[in-house]
Design a protein around this nucleic acid. Sequence first.
DNA 1: ACAAAAGTGTTGGCTGTACACCCATGC
DNA 2: GCATGGGTGTACAGCCAACACTTTTGT
Lengths: 231, 231
Amino acid sequence: MEKRDYYSCNDKMYVATDCIVFGFSADELKLLIFQRRVEPHKGQWSLIGSFVKLEEDVDSAAQRVLSEITGLDNVYFDQLKTYGAAERDPGYRCISVGQYALIRIDEYDRELVEKHGAFWYKLDELPPLCLDHDQMVRDALKELRRKARYQPIGFELLPEKFTLPQLISLYEAIYQKPLDSRNFRKKILSLNVLIKLDEKDKSNSKKGAFLYEFNHANYKALLESGYNFVL
Amino acid sequence: MEKRDYYSCNDKMYVATDCIVFGFSADELKLLIFQRRVEPHKGQWSLIGSFVKLEEDVDSAAQRVLSEITGLDNVYFDQLKTYGAAERDPGYRCISVGQYALIRIDEYDRELVEKHGAFWYKLDELPPLCLDHDQMVRDALKELRRKARYQPIGFELLPEKFTLPQLISLYEAIYQKPLDSRNFRKKILSLNVLIKLDEKDKSNSKKGAFLYEFNHANYKALLESGYNFVL
DNA sequence: ACAAAAGTGTTGGCTGTACACCCATGC
DNA sequence: GCATGGGTGTACAGCCAACACTTTTGT
């Protein structure tokens, strides 16, 4: 960046971005964490993050990190909030922009993840994390629950083709409580954002469950014509 | 800060915080803005903000700025989102944590505000703002609308004692549409978070409207016992 | 034939919304 | 006595929540 610095009488500091990466498999919500590779707190469990570079958007930094560790390029992610307490990082003054990401757990690159020393942990078996990362996880889970009610972001956690029992089980995992399958089906189908396919998935039952796809066009139309639906 | 810098091979940058300051008077939502005093874009209209200092929380920086300009110490504010595009500020690489604040417009220090060259503008008569501040205002308004539905933050914009017609008019200003006063009264009174006083405010009518106070204890209890109310 | 998961409808209660008139007072 | 804003009640509709049985098919 060859620009003049107009602000040089003020303080500069590090800006990091940390990603709270959710996945879903075997009816459980999982989180991707790894062991910190820099001092201080080297070796402690940590969210996946990176410092933001001078010539890089904060969002690009999150995308870069996600892509480095999972091998995925088009991951859904969104900003959570920024953690800016003066003493949050003993390494030096550093603020962190928390972002939460949703990953189709069957698509990520297992080798790449392992090469980086990263692991998927069940949400309720998470070890303690370094710095304020535990707080970030709590905040992200709250935001995921909030957002999943108003936008069908849950689909980001499932494969392209999925069954209704899978979808129900995902929402049960997000809200940590059992849902009534009849009511759930009624609601979700009435939105007209699912395309029923002619295939069945028989991996979980002899009868087999019909596969569905998400209908992006209808969803967009729904949003534009007054989005007052709740899942 | 006399600490060792563990991260010195990474980039440092400026961190600013900008406040989207809402007020309410004469049935209109207003925003506090001022003319930027530093290059580049000196003299252009801008939100109220400051660089964050090394030894200062991001939130403290926002509080400091609000207090400097309005003379108020206990202003309600909350984080909106962080604006981190690499090219957002031509002065140098600088990310900004946007925070929105709600102010009782009758309590702030008029002289102090004027001394800083700040003004209250009606939301729909706002001049163009510098950098990405227009976007911040749009985002803040959206968040204010969202949040006002689930938490009675609207009260932060009214004096300690207020009338129901005032409260209705505030919500009409926030949502930019007329509300049905009977339904609004029913809903808000059923929450049991208002204390009816024996005083009337006769400044707007000969009959006079009863004054109310916000009942913080009942509100807290309501929140704790499963907060499923919507205004 | 039986086990195991998938799929399907109805009802009652509650909540949001639409709607119009009387009340109190100062002038 | 009249003009102005403050305050009140009812009826209908739509939505959410509760609830149990039939279907399919592989073994």
